[in-house]
Simulated assay, not measured.
Amino acid sequence: MPSELRLGAGLAALILLAAAPLAAEPPLTVDAVIARPSTEARVYKLTGEAVAHETLSASFPAGGRIAEMLVAEGDRVTAGEKLARIESVQQEQAVRAAEAGVATAEASYRKAREDSARQDALLERGATTRSARDAAADQLRAAEATVAQAHADLDRAKKALSDTVLLAPAAATVTDRKAEPGQVVGAAQPVLELALGHSFDAVFEVPEVMLTSFPTAPMVTLTRLNAPGKPFRGVVHEISPLVDQARGTVKVTVRIIDPPPGLGYGDPLIGSVTRPGGQRISLPWSAMSATEKGPAVWVIDPETRVAHLRRIDVLRYETGKIVVRSGLKAGEEVVTLGSNLLYPGRTVRVKEEE
C-alpha cells in the first residue's frame, strides 16, 4: 500500500476515534417548565396604624399653669366630665372683687331709689324744687347702670373662673396627653387629644409612585399585626395632596368599614390591595441565564430535544420568579435546573421523561 494511502487511512481513523465520544455523549438531565401565560395580579402591602375617625384637640380658653390632669391616655370620658384644671388664684380673687362691687352698687342703688322717692313726695307737697327732684332721678338712673355694670363684671369673672376647668365636650376616648401638671400653657394650646365616637380609620404612608398604579381607589383588605388570620375591610377615604419631601410618601387615610372587636387606637395594621394585570409568562428564578446582551433562558426544541439559548426581555424581578415581557411563546419548554451545564446544541432529557 502506498505511503500516502496509509497516511490518509490513519488520519481518518484518528478523526473517527475523536468524534466517537462526542456522538456517544448521553443527554443531560434537567428540570424544565412549560411557559404558560397567566393573569398577573400584584398585591401591595403596607403597615399603618388605627386612628380615630373623628378627633378633637381640647384646650383652655386662657393661658396658665396646669394644676391637675384628671385623665390619662385610654380613659373613656362622658360629656361634661372634668379633664384638667389650671391654677385659678387670680380668677377667684377677681370673682370676690366683682361680688364686692355688686354689693356696693346695689347699696348705692337702694340709697338713690330712696332719695328719688323722697324728692317725689316733697315735690308733691311743695317742699322741694323740681330741679332737686330731677337730680335725684338722674342719680337713680346712674345707680341702675352701675348695678348692671357690676353684674356684668361678676358674670365675666365667673366665666373666667369656670374656664380654668377643662370639660369634655362629648363622650370620647383620651388618645394623647400633650401637657403635664406644672406646665405653663397658652390660650388655645392643645392639652388633650380626644377621639369622638367609635369609628376607626387606618393611616398609611404610601410611596408616591404606587398611587399611579391604580386608576381608581381600590378596596383595602386590613389585618391586625397580632391577628393576621382575621381580615376586615376598608375604603380609601382621603389622600393628602402633599408629598413628604424626606421620604417621598403620601398620607392615605382608609375608612374601616367593619372594625373587629378589641381594635384600639394606635394598633398596627397591615393593609393590602390587589391590582389585576394582563396575561404574562412567569418563570422560576433558576431559569435565568444571560448573554452579553442581557437576560436569556434555555429553550428546548420539542423535536430534537436540543437546548438553545434565547434572549428575553424581563418586565420585572419578584421574589422567587421573573416576569417576562417578551421573547417567549406559550407552550415552549424552558430549562429551570441544570442550565449552568448547558452549551448550544446540547441534547437534554427532562427529569420527568426518565
Rank of each mutant, 00 (worst) to 15 (best):
V323M: 12
T319A: 14
P61R: 07
L167W: 04
E81V: 07
Q149F: 13
V206S: 06
F60C: 02
T29C: 05
V243K: 10
T253Q: 02
A9G: 09
E114Y: 07
D153E: 14
T274A: 08
A179P: 09
I300C: 00
A246H: 04
D176V: 09
V220R: 01
T146Y: 14
G331Q: 10
A100S: 11
R233I: 03
E106A: 13
A172D: 04
V191F: 04
S131R: 01
G74H: 03
E124C: 01
V191I: 05
L337A: 12
E114L: 13
Q139V: 02
L154G: 06
R65G: 08
E180N: 10
S162K: 08
E238W: 09
L22C: 07
K321H: 15
V33P: 13
I15E: 12
Q183P: 02
V252R: 00
L196T: 01
Q245V: 06
R133H: 00
R96E: 09
D313G: 08
T274M: 09
A152H: 07
G248N: 02
L225I: 05
P259H: 03
V314S: 08
E292T: 01
R156D: 12
G266V: 08
L337G: 07
R76Y: 07
M69Y: 06
N226H: 05
R76I: 05
T55M: 06
G294E: 01
A19G: 15
V51I: 11
D153I: 06
A112E: 11
T274L: 06
A20W: 15
V299F: 01
V324L: 12
V235Q: 07
L56H: 10
A35Y: 06
L17T: 10
K82R: 15
T78C: 03
A136T: 00
E92F: 01
T29G: 04
A84I: 14
E54Q: 13
S240D: 10
G8S: 11
T336A: 15
G48Q: 05
Q90R: 12
I256C: 01
M69R: 06
E352R: 06
S272T: 13
G327F: 13
P207A: 05
P37F: 10
T291R: 00
L328A: 13
E333Q: 14
G197E: 01
A135Q: 01
E332H: 09
V254N: 01
I15W: 07
A9L: 15
P302Y: 03
E144M: 09
D153G: 14
E318H: 11
T291H: 00
E318G: 14
L166S: 08
R76P: 05
A135M: 00
S59A: 15
L342W: 09
Y317L: 13
P241N: 01
K158C: 08
